[in-house]
Design a protein around this nucleic acid. Structure first.
Lengths: 238, 238
DNA sequence: CGGTTCGTTGAGGCCCATCAATCTATGTGG
DNA sequence: CCACATAGATTGATGGGCCTCAACGAACCG
């Protein structure tokens, strides 16, 4: 969010933001199928967006990492149809949805940033749908790990990162059972595609993992790919 | 699109729109993984958004029906990572992406409509991901039919509608093979959940189909659910 | 140090994919 | 108006990827 706004827009956003608030791990701070009157920014920790089926299964439909919005949808929709909860203890900053909508109406830069965020989520979800529908368990998992690595900024061989998701979370993200995720991860470790130690994941050869996953980072539109950011208008202030 | 804009915004949009253009069935007018410098509105006909895997499989990630945008993403992203093609012969109206972005920067109502559209696509994609990842073939198909019925405005028992998608399209939308789709549709017809005649689908008992599909229309945020549309600002002009 | 969450292992089975035809519509040109 | 081409729908046999059920091991934590 912040990196998409110039200084003035950011200051205006801070004016309407509530003070940071801690949320314990696992507490559903956006309730599935209930009204949500605030949009939340994850300041610290990881959160999952998920939907639950009537028969009790869960599908994770997105991750929110530090600096990202948990529920943009709430800006325009009174009711979101997914839940959000932190995986780890988290800190969030909240904004009343109508205030955010009003700010977006006043400030084109804010409106643009919101649209940008929504469209990146869109592209990400398209990819998830394609992989869940059309690719093997191994490829889905490899891709999820590539996506996470890219989002936490790991981009070279031997890079490692903290990965607070359990195998059950991974399963819910890629549409598998935890048992199968476990077996596939074992195979990936045996192949040397990844190494794990506790909650830390290491990628010895990122090109190989990406080849296995058929991963290309473009859809994430990360800062640094500013080639794709139209120069028409405001750029980041700093 | 039109129904989300007031008269003035709509007029402004028309100012920058190119004249309507026919596109034959099956012609990919937005190329997967290539630059797209225009946003297209489907005036007539149905189009599919899809992604292709390296090994040649296809996953449909969205439908664009008359009045809808084919590729909102192109407003902000130079390159989209999905392709779009009409299923039937279609007519489209195009707008240069930078002109649309500029219009959105000038007119909050346009920006809001674009965001609205992006967020509805988001909610729809979340649902698709959940069903592909977590639900049975029968439920996925039933839900897709419910969604289509809702989007074409069929809402009562015995309603019927033209459905130009082939069984292969349906398979690509729900992540199955055409053969399996065929078998599941046969079962649904035998159960009396649907009836088909050529390209026409009839739903004898929509409540039963929706129960089978676990369908709730809320996520589509259709006009008529205006309860969810914040009154903060512009409403439709007519 | 007992409870709880997470990871791991194994056996068995089902849902849906794969491969391979055949059948049916629709349309086209001679 | 019919022979033919082509796309789409249908059917059957077989197999595999992943699920289900059911434990057990390991790590964490108060």
């Amino acid at each position: 969010m912040a990196s998409l706004l110039n200084r003035a827009d950011l200051a205006a956003l801070e004016t309407i933001s509530l003070p940071p608030r801690p949320v314990p791990a696992g507490v559903e701070f956006v309730r599935e199928n209930e009204a949500a009157d605030r949009v939340h920014i994850i300041r610290d920790g990881w959160a999952i967006r998920y939907k639950t089926t009537r028969d009790g299964n869960r599908q994770i439909v997105g991750l929110a990492l530090p600096g990202e919005l948990a529920n943009v949808d709430s800006m325009l929709f009174e009711r979101v149809d997914f839940g959000v909860r932190p995986v780890t203890a988290a800190t969030i900053v909240s904004v009343a949805r109508l205030k955010l909508a009003a700010l977006a109406a006043e400030r084109p830069g804010v409106a643009r940033a919101i649209t940008w965020i929504a469209l990146v989520e869109n592209a990400t979800l398209c990819g998830w749908a394609m992989r869940i529908g059309r690719q093997s368990a191994a490829r889905r998992l490899a891709h999820l790990l590539c996506e996470i690595a890219a989002r936490v900024g790991v981009d070279g061989d031997g890079g490692s990162f903290e990965m607070p998701l359990t195998q059950t979370h991974l399963a819910d993200a890629v549409g598998l059972t935890p048992m199968h995720v476990n077996r596939v991860l074992q195979a990936m470790r045996a192949d040397g595609l990844i190494a794990t130690a506790g909650r830390k994941v290491t990628v010895p050869d990122i090109a190989r993992l990406r080849a296995e996953a058929d991963f290309e980072a473009g859809y994430l539109h990360r800062p640094g790919d500013r080639a794709t950011y139209p120069t028409l208008e405001v750029a980041a202030g700093d």
